[in-house]
Structures are given as C-alpha cells and as structure tokens.
C-alpha cells in the first residue's frame, strides 16, 4: 500500500475512533469534554496534513483535481476550521459532529482511490488559489451544516423535554443559530473571493464548473439573506444549512469531471 493511502487510512481511523469514543461516552451517560476526543482529532488532522503534503509531492501540484483529493482537502479544511472556530463553541462536542462527516468523506475518497494527474500544461498559481479558496469555502459550508445538525438536535431535545447528557454539553440554540449564520457568511465571502479570482483567469473555465459554482453561490446568498433578514425561523434556516450542503457536495463530482 502506498504511503499516501496508509496516511489517509490512519487519519480516517483516528476520526472514526473519535466518533466511537464520543458515542460510547454518551451512551454510558458520562459524556464530558474528553481530552481523548481532542487528541484523536489533532492526530487525524496531523495525518491528513501529512497525506496532503505527500500527495502534493506525488502529483507535483496542489492535490485538488480528483473527487477523492477534493474530499480530503475539504475534510482537512473542515477540521482546520473546527480547531479555529471550535473554541467559540464546545470544542470536543463540535468534534463529535465533525468527525463523522470527515470519516465519511475520507471513506469515500479511499474507496475512489488516487490516480496520477494528467498534466495539461503549466501550473497557474491563480487557478490553484481559486480552487483552494473555493474548497475552504465549501469547508465553511460543511461546518455550517454540522452546526445546523447540532441546532436541530438541541432544538428537538428542548421541544420534547428530553434532558440528558448531550443536552448539557450542547451550546444554547441562540448561539448555534448565530454560529450557522457566521459560518454560512464566511463560506459565502470565501466563495465570492474564489469566483472573483476566476474573472482574472486567462485559462478558459468550463461552463458546467462556472454554472455550478454560481448556483452554489446563489443558494448560499439566499440562505444568508433569509438568515440576515430573519425571514424564516432559525429552525428552518438550520435545515437550509444542512440540506444546502448537499448541493456543493454533489457539485464536486460535476466540477471535477467537467
């Protein structure tokens, strides 16, 4: 097995272990912010970073041209954002919700496999920047989706008077609603920047890529507007943040194959 695959497999196992550890703790009713959770997330992040470095060496550029590579890059960005913004929430708990998503994304990437890139010409730094910023924007949307799930879980427990271990660890729903708004806003700003860069590109960009990127931008612009103007309830906007992520997730296949 090549080194890159070993690194990614190890990273995926670390995130899966974080999920198992958290679920066991919750099932036993003894959930609390465990160091093990943060250590496993940090270990997974380190292995992800090592994977991206070696994969970059292997293909001679930023590894963002196949679906598998993109999934890993988004997963890496999600964990990076989790460490950056997580302290604003309950760090390990956000990890509980982040780790399954990253595990699934990397599982799909491992199943797809990693092949060599067909070098189409000289590497354009702006194209690389455009792609990297767009993928970090997608990571912000992913984290918005995760926070949306946290909101919906907490909201359901409050409505149904189901007060148990997880309830005490989740942040207030009002804070979660604000976090969703900020993460979607951050993603939108980053995606706007990525699309702005595309105007400066001299390399021709295929239509499906641009069309889908703009559709994703439009969707999140609408979600942001609805949140900003309080047009609909936070519960519905949380659902939008969760379901909205399906579109960028699907668009990855279209964009990479266009």
């Amino acid at each position: 097995m090549p080194l890159t695959s070993i690194l990614l497999l190890a990273a995926t196992l670390a995130f899966a272990a974080a999920v198992v550890q958290a679920l066991l703790a919750i099932k036993s009713g003894a959930w609390r912010q465990a160091k093990a959770q943060v250590v496993l997330m940090a270990l997974g992040f380190g292995l992800q970073t090592a994977f991206l470095y070696h994969r970059g060496q292997e293909v001679g550029q930023c590894p963002m041209k196949s679906v598998a590579d993109i999934l890993v890059f988004i997963g890496w960005s999600v964990v990076l954002l989790y460490f950056l913004v997580g302290s604003g929430f309950r760090l390990s708990l956000l990890g509980l919700f982040t780790a399954p998503l990253v595990t699934v994304m990397q599982g799909i990437a491992l199943a797809q496999g990693f092949g060599p890139y067909a070098i189409k010409g000289k590497i354009n730094a702006l194209v690389e920047l455009h792609a990297a910023v767009a993928l970090i924007a997608y990571a912000a949307f992913a984290l918005g989706c995760i926070t949306g799930v946290m909101y919906l879980v907490q909201e359901r427990m409050l409505k149904q008077h189901r007060i148990h271990a997880l309830f005490y660890q989740l942040p207030p729903i009002q804070g979660l609603a604000k976090a969703i708004q900020r993460l979607v806003g951050l993603g939108l700003v980053l995606l706007s920047a990525a699309l702005g860069i595309s105007f400066a590109l001299h390399t021709p960009v295929s239509n499906p890529k641009l069309v889908f990127s703009w559709i994703v931008w439009g969707l999140y612009a609408v979600i942001s507007f609805l949140m900003w103007r309080h047009v609909t309830s936070p519960r519905r906007t949380a659902w939008l943040a969760v379901l909205g992520f399906v579109l960028p997730f699907i668009s990855l296949w279209i964009v990479t194959h266009a």
């Binding site: 907490q154 409050l158 007060i163 271990a165 309830f167 005490y168 989740l170 207030p172 729903i173 009002q174």
Partner: peptide
Amino acid sequence: TMIQRGSTSVGSVAVDLAEKVHD
C-alpha cells in the same frame, strides 16, 4: 463523576433551560 450533573430543584432546572435557549 457526574455528581454535579443535572438539576435537582425546579429553580435550577429553570436556569439550565434558560441557559440552553439564551445567553
């Protein structure tokens, strides 16, 4: 342990609930 976990009086339940809805 979780000896402090949960509320044991109506007053403290009210506080816990308020904390999970608002800052």
